[in-house]
Nucleic acid binder design. Sequence first.
DNA 1: CGCGACCTTGATTACACTCAATGCGCGTGG
DNA 2: CCACGCGCATTGAGTGTAATCAAGGTCGCG
Lengths: 215, 215
Amino acid sequence: MHTYTTSRIALPSRSSQPALPEAFEPALLQPLSFFPAGAEIYAQGEKAGPFYQVEFGAVRIYRLLADGRRQISAFHLAGETFGFEADSTHHFFAEAINATGIRVFRFATGADISRQLLPLALKGLTRAQEHLLVLGRQNAIERVAAFLLDMAERQGGLQPIELPMSRMDIGDYLGLTIETVSRVFSRLKDKGVIRLSSLRSVEIVKHDALQDMSE
Amino acid sequence: MHTYTTSRIALPSRSSQPALPEAFEPALLQPLSFFPAGAEIYAQGEKAGPFYQVEFGAVRIYRLLADGRRQISAFHLAGETFGFEADSTHHFFAEAINATGIRVFRFATGADISRQLLPLALKGLTRAQEHLLVLGRQNAIERVAAFLLDMAERQGGLQPIELPMSRMDIGDYLGLTIETVSRVFSRLKDKGVIRLSSLRSVEIVKHDALQDMSE
DNA sequence: CGCGACCTTGATTACACTCAATGCGCGTGG
DNA sequence: CCACGCGCATTGAGTGTAATCAAGGTCGCG
């Protein structure tokens, strides 16, 4: 991992998320850290403390079972914030999916940042609970449809949608195998609902059809 | 729904959760509200604002798909708090499972309660993300085992465990059908892992076996 | 005591998983 | 610039777990 000490750089971000605070007060000076593909940002069991904002690239948050089964609970794209925990320990792993730039915010002991963190925590809670519905009650097509629509929305509806993650990541996020994800992509392509300009680049042709499928 | 205006009553709660604040400051006077079994506490789409603490009884938080499929994202037992939202709208339904007493906290506009709410929101976030692993990557036996261990822990390890909810509620929480839940209970009973003193009262005989199954 | 809601059990089906082989795309090195 | 190799993705065949459909059984309450 290589750490820049610049305090501000041009943002390659194409995120259209509602603007997040560019800095948190009272935050200590935040270096920009660079993580190559696959690099660990933090591990389950590690001490938590700072939190993190994606400048460019993408991050996966996940948990493992003893036998290696993996559940990705969230992806974080440019502009999004993660890493806050209920107690002082990380309950999940965080890894860079691709080359990723991350701003790390640390706080003076005693600083009260709850006012800034609460909306982010509540947003994450709502997202997680909505994802429970997908995993608990939707079939493979519905899951993939919901995922594509979510990615589209988080990229501001810009076409095509860029998927920074592999089919395996998508499977581990949706509770499906890589093969099932692939088959659903193929079916959606055959039906003319989506078009794949490349493996990681999806164009939604029939938005309404996808919406219907997602419920 | 019937509302008492007593500001303090004896608590039938048997929860051994870490003590939650008995009152939030600066909260307005909180009446105790009584909800009979099945009563709606709030609905998806309703305006949010106050939040809620279970005094006795149990609550289910859920979401519906258009065709009626239901996912329960959380149960809340005595002592637990729920109802806070990312924006001013409820994204879920909340219903009393049984006869339930709930304290409703409302706040003066402008009051900053983020310091008190943040730990609760973060706890909920961790719980939801852990449940994602169960729904995404565990089979029926593992799901039921994890559920029973969770209920046991939240009741302080007291035996037997009281299940305030129906098999259907359990199924909708675990992403299973009522039949599958029933079959798994039967299998666990036949194996001598649990004992059912009644339908809603479970004794964990082989705690270790259950723990092994839950992962 | 009888009814109705809830639960259990059985038989069959279906959807996604597993195992296996092939295909594609990209980076590297000749 | 092309060929090779490797990682990732697709496609196919067969299997298995949980869903569905259906029939009883049990519990609790009026």
